[in-house]
Design a protein around this nucleic acid. Sequence first.
DNA 1: CAGTTAGTATAACGCTTGTAACAGTAATCG
DNA 2: CGATTACTGTTACAAGCGTTATACTAACTG
Lengths: 179, 179
Amino acid sequence: MAHGIADLSLRPLAVAIGTQAPVLLHHFGSKEQLVVEILGRVRDRLRTIGRDAVSDQYRSGLGAVWAWASDPEHGPLMRLFFEVYGLALRRPDRYSDFLHHSVHDWLDEPLAAVDDISATLAIATVTGLLLDLLATKDRDRVDNAMQRFLILLRSHADHLTPTERNSVNAVDETITIEG
Amino acid sequence: MAHGIADLSLRPLAVAIGTQAPVLLHHFGSKEQLVVEILGRVRDRLRTIGRDAVSDQYRSGLGAVWAWASDPEHGPLMRLFFEVYGLALRRPDRYSDFLHHSVHDWLDEPLAAVDDISATLAIATVTGLLLDLLATKDRDRVDNAMQRFLILLRSHADHLTPTERNSVNAVDETITIEG
DNA sequence: CAGTTAGTATAACGCTTGTAACAGTAATCG
DNA sequence: CGATTACTGTTACAAGCGTTATACTAACTG
């Protein structure tokens, strides 16, 4: 998280953690395997985002996920996520797991109760706004955009039949309901 | 676009274009400067997205931008964009221009007639969905999500006063209006 | 035509990279 | 207690990196 993964080299990493490069290789086999295991940890942490957003501290639905993801404290993790995302798009063979889980860890579990289309839109909105926030640090503008998205969802649901409403509103309510 | 920029090295690039590494350095001064100029070209191409979406061939508003960006033909450019985006987030000092323009090239020109909040949401949605599409190649799901976003915008505007409606509807109509 | 410039090719330098080979130490186990 | 194993440390290697220096050729300029 501190140094990224693009120009990660074993020797500086080794001295940073008080050991030597060959020791790392002894434990991980190769640099690539080390990276793979790191990315596994990254995915684990991202998956806990869904769970943490359900916890007692965050109970306001999709806005909670946004609060979590846009928390400056999680900036380094998110930056790492997007860095790997970009590299993975270029080497899908190597990072296919990462790409698949980046989307489906959300679709399949925290948003399982929501239809795929609504969930896809919600994930994309959070992702896109997060990318904007990290790039411009213009928190006001981006936060307001998120709020407007939530308003859009509610306003739309308000003018649907109750059955239709479920599928849309669920995006914003699922997490609260489950919590 | 074919090989990415993360592990770009001069020698393979040079032979690929039929010359040698020192020749590249003679023309660009340094590798970093070469990269900077490449990124300038990338930005130029991305900026033409906004204009192309206004052209006669694409007249359906925000959906047109989506059609352009999600066109498989532009996949390599988009992948390069996201790769650089990820790297730029880690080195904002080096790529500050790129980060700024990635958002503001949209806010300031093609979407200048739209309020910043709506424009921010629209950009983020396209960006996020594009990231999903490139990662999962699940075009149906992502296309449907985009369509739902457009429905959300229209449905919301339909239940506002005419003045309120303008700011929301403009996101989807600006391009058509200007074209 | 002479001279300056732009462009290209070749060789080499110093440095970093991932990795392999080997030696030493601490802990575990029969 | 002796032996096997797990772990750490040091050295070395071959390859690739960005870059510099130098020589050569083609093209413009006065």
